[in-house]
Design a protein around this nucleic acid. Structure first.
Lengths: 223, 223
DNA sequence: TTCGTTGGGGAGTGGCACTATCCAAGCATG
DNA sequence: CATGCTTGGATAGTGCCACTCCCCAACGAA
């Protein structure tokens, strides 16, 4: 199919597809003449994935390219490629060396990982982007004076472990290795908005349960 | 204290503080003369919260203003103000009317909420931003052909419900009402990176458990 | 009085994700 | 073969956003 048809089938403008081609998010089509190229269903699928990563997953274009490149890198083994999405995702900037909250947060996170027995968040001696983000978030909570010790984080970690089991189950449903890699990327990123949305809906529900009468009035009025 | 000291204590440049003042994210200081104003600890605290929302929570400046305004709106009752953060957060654009994936996703989400018995995600007949985001994410997953029926979403919803309980417990630890509102905003937004980071770390851990030998080699090589 | 400092406001900057325009090479039709 | 629309590639421009720079008039300590 031609670029125009690829555009129509994916719902992405031709201008944007050309931009993605330039940025290397999409394989070039099979050149059929000097000024025409042929695209196939793989392109449609890839394009939909890229769109979903960028629009829903809020992944920057440059990062999406890294993720996809890592997922396609035949030199990495299966486990590493499954983790490629995680590693390529943007990391927080390194906090200032002398920030006591960041240092304390780092120790808290270390203790937490120790406690739950996770030891696979390192590669070549450096901690993962996820680890760094976690430290930054804990540091911010500390600065604001909110509780975020190991005891508070532990329930989150346990729930995350449960999520990982169901997520990996979904990945393993895919029959081919390439399918598993793509699924790992897609499910990692696209279930994030699902999870956050559900958490917010659950907040609304739980808040209503605690603070409202059955008839919908605020039962804490004047408190 | 003066603007310069506020800047030093919060680690935010004076230019940025002035920008936040202009944008209404921060109360103006107490004017002490035509060209000088006095700030206090409340400003430091608010500034740290704003920073955390914007930098870690990736909340757009305009949205942060809405959230803070809602949290301070005395005309709303307690429960509504606790939910203000959720409602002010940016929503996905409405999908095209005729998108079958979006329609199917909407039905799936409706069935899910029915199933878990959540009925508080509506206000004035419109669904919440979280609901819309959820529908958009499920639609994207469907388009890519990944499983996201009620059965797949249900474990996520149950875990979200557990999170909501621990989150609201933390909110209720705050002694004052204003403190509870601020905590609801801060914890809703700032625990999001915590949750996502932990999920990714858990993915790495679970993937290692499934696909690697004890000595660190990929046990699926050639599979 | 003098001169560095302060706060306010408008204009400018850089990054990002597109998007509009141009151009030459097809291909389709008469 | 001529004509005119389409295609793909390249370049430059747009709009948005989160700052950031700069200037000015008013302070206020020396």
């Amino acid at each position: 199919m031609r670029l125009a048809e690829l555009s129509e089938r994916s719902g992405v403008s031709t201008a944007t597809i050309k931009y993605y081609l330039r940025e290397g998010l999409l394989q070039p089509g099979r050149r059929v003449s000097a000024t025409q190229a042929e695209y196939d269903d793989a392109h449609v699928r890839r394009l939909r994935l890229v769109r979903a990563l960028i629009q829903l997953g809020k992944v920057p274009v440059a990062t999406a390219r890294e993720v996809i490149a890592a997922a396609e890198d035949e030199s990495l083994d299966h486990h590493l490629r499954l983790g490629a999405a995680t590693w390529a995702l943007p990391a927080e900037p390194e906090p200032p060396e002398d920030d006591p909250d960041a240092a304390a947060a780092g120790r808290t996170v270390g203790a937490l990982l120790e406690h739950v027995g996770w030891r696979h968040d390192q590669k070549a001696g450096e901690v993962s982007p996820a680890h760094r983000t976690l430290v930054a978030a804990v540091a911010a909570l500390r600065r604001l004076g909110y509780p975020c010790g190991v005891a508070h984080l532990l329930p989150y970690a346990r729930l995350a472990a449960q999520l990982a089991v169901t997520d990996l189950d979904m990945v393993e449903e895919q029959p081919t290795e390439a399918g598993q890699i793509e699924a790992a990327v897609a499910l990692t990123v696209l279930y994030e908005p699902v999870l956050l949305s559900l958490r917010r809906l659950a907040h609304a529900e739980e808040s209503a349960r605690r603070f409202m009468d059955d008839d919908g009035a605020d039962s804490t009025a004047g408190a």
